[in-house]
Design a protein around this nucleic acid. Sequence first.
RNA 1: GCCCUCGUAGCCCAACUGGCAGAGGCGGCCGGCUUAAACCCGGCUCAGUGCGGGUUCGAGUCCCGCCGGGGGCACCA
Length: 834
Amino acid sequence: MTSASPETDETRYDFRAIEERWLPVWRKTQPFRAGDATDERPTKYVLDMFPYPSGDLHMGHAEAYALGDVIARYWTQRGFNVLHPIGWDSFGLPAENAAITRGLDPRGWTEDNIAQQRTSMERYACSFDWDRVLATHRPDYYRWNQWLFTRLHERGLAYRKHSNVNWCPKDQTVLANEQVVGGLCERCDTPVTKKKLNQWYFKVTDYADRLLDDLETLQSTWPSKVIAMQRNWIGRSTGADVRFAIEGREEPVDIYTTRPDTLYGATFFVVAADSDLASELAAGSDAALQSEFADYLDKVKSASEIERLSTDREKTGVFLGRYAINPVNGARLPIWVSDYVLADYGHGAIMAVPAHDQRDLDFARAMDLPVTPVVDVRDEEGEPLPDPRESGIATTGDGVLMNSGPLDGLDKAAAIETITAQLAAEGVGEATTNYRLRDWLISRQRYWGTPIPIVHCDACGEVRVPDDQLPIELPSAEGLDLKPKGTSPLGAATDWVNTTCPSCGGAATRDTDTMDTFVDSSWYFLRYLSPGKTDGPFDELDAKRWAPVDQYVGGVTHAILHLLYARFFTKALHDMGMIDFEEPFSALLNQGMVQMDGSAMSKSRGNLVRLSEQLDEFGVDAVRLTMSFAGPPEDDIDWADVSPAGSAKFLARAWRLARDVSSEPTVDLTTGDAALRAVTHRTLHDAAELVEGFRFNVVVARVMELVNATRKAIDSGPGGADPAVREAAEAVAMLLSLFAPYCAEDMWSMLGRENVARAGWPTVDESLLVEETVTCVVQVKGKVRDRLEVAPGIGEDALRELALASPQVQRTLDGADIRTVIVRAPKLVNIVPA
RNA sequence: GCCCUCGUAGCCCAACUGGCAGAGGCGGCCGGCUUAAACCCGGCUCAGUGCGGGUUCGAGUCCCGCCGGGGGCACCA
């Protein structure tokens, strides 16, 4: 690069002038373009979660990108070839809803927002590689969604089924389980209801075990909170299937239980009200019961998720007048239907053991059904727990089996083992595993998404669109009514819908649903690796070179959804032989949120802080530095508690150091003042460790210390001409380049150098880190009585003698006998009197 | 209801595998610079770590029980 350094005003720190000076330079030099295949530096893939283009950047983006940038810029300084890309998660409801409200074309609205966000990111000095941007709403991206869908479909991992799905009455679309939060639609907070529809799914449950077990490999590099949430979400439970004969029905019915040991305590049988089995069994009973069942089913279906989930809800149900036979003892169990049994977990039917399951007990008490304890459960003192029949509290703990035939006298574990073996031997059951995790419902009845590449043909059925006909582009929104109405708006685009069957050439129609946008974000990290590729989603060699992501940075809001789906895609791609790793994100950092006055910012709350106003008032660097300095990255930042003005003040102070350096860039740094050099080198040494541990707030504090020490050296020490002052100022500039790139670049330029982002981390002189003496604390009975300046290498015996000889210690001891002396050389001696 | 986290100066936060409670900042106060103010420079102030026990030579750190804040899960048989 030739010297393009614009003139620097060397008298005062003016962040506006500095921003105007360097932004155009960086636009031209693109200092963060990733190195190509010939680059020999080791690679590092640092990824920030990509934003929705639903307006300009806000404070939350500012925090996330400030922190991601610290990491990306750090590895660049450490000599790595860093890939730090950005793009837009640009399909989805926000664009569509905005289009509906304002009568705009979602495409135009989306592209405008992307342009605005990009400009803001450049101003914010994000260290992105601008040659690799992607936006998921563009055909050159979603084409590969369709291609990947096709691959999954070929493998039976994408399929369609009728089932009761979560339905948002406001957005008029189905929702994935993961998008129902507390019974409400994640997007609009409308109570979610159920609807029976034919929908597309990805078979995530095939990967349940691997998704769970592989969390082990992330134990030390992902937040334990996220791992716990994923584990909990997958919810593996082990138990047994048990086959119950049904009177008047040819086929037996399986139930799933985690407590086969309590089989002798089953007193009734419950079928999920909204299951097919319930309807079938009801149809076989008398007319009065049939209509009672029909009424109940109506009530269950109209209940919102919110009502269904409320815990203190009374148990309800209907007796079907039919009986199931307990395979272990032939007992006739009355069959009830109820909504407390879920249709889509296990087999949608349970054996009820009210003595040892609280839900069953609640139901038994509501319906006046018998309760038979079969486990003698005791408390810590060995006293029997109160009888559930009296207490109303089921005894769910371990204990000795009773009233259970061959199981009597066994404990829970032994009983489970025995009974499971017996069931298997008799062919009426076996050990099984169940998961809370359900398959991923990916179809949406909305316009702004990836069309599903399937054609429906009367003759051939469901036909995949051949790869060479992809992408199936979204038709223009013009003339389409995008308002939610329960079926996809694409259905009205008749020219688009009507097509020919790829298989037989006859008349056929396109599938009109679009994909969940979480499909888009499940593999975007791979697309960045091969931006222009037209014959595949990504290049396998590029993937080998860069992937998996070394460091992922984003909000904890995606702890379950996005991360689980991306992990699923990665495993599926691995099984297709396209990549050689099974986890997409080797390390994860969850940054907190930015709040104001103790709560999330929002227009309606009236506590919204505008990023653009903060940037205008304090400058980009001050805002970025404040984000890093506020506290640990995973903590929330309350903007009312922090001080961007203070950050600006500090940056000015740092900047003036460069102004006051009066030595030449060529000066021999090793000849500088030893004391200041020691501070500089210790800071450089510690900062590396601290950044890698995400302790950015501490790094900033240490840079502040270094700035203070350098200031002192200039004003009342060796002075601005001392080489140590130059060395310190250069270190400050290099370190600040991670947090405050404009200020750092300007300092660097004043110091007669170019391109601070690539300055490189100076080699730390280990000899400067060695301290000549250390302070040894001498305690008597744990209380500090004296401090000794000793050599770091002092021996235990010598130190013990020194400490005992201390006059302070002698005075405190006052002739008392000494019981023991604990010596931790060279830092501490503790003398314990008898 | 269950699980996970966090409680350190007026405020935001530091304190390595248990070892001098304070690195840094905000605020406040004092002084220097200034005709004055701002800026700037220097200095000072302020807690014994939410409460109660325990382990230990020694506890902010480990254990138990409370209290308070935040988060997650919630009929998954």
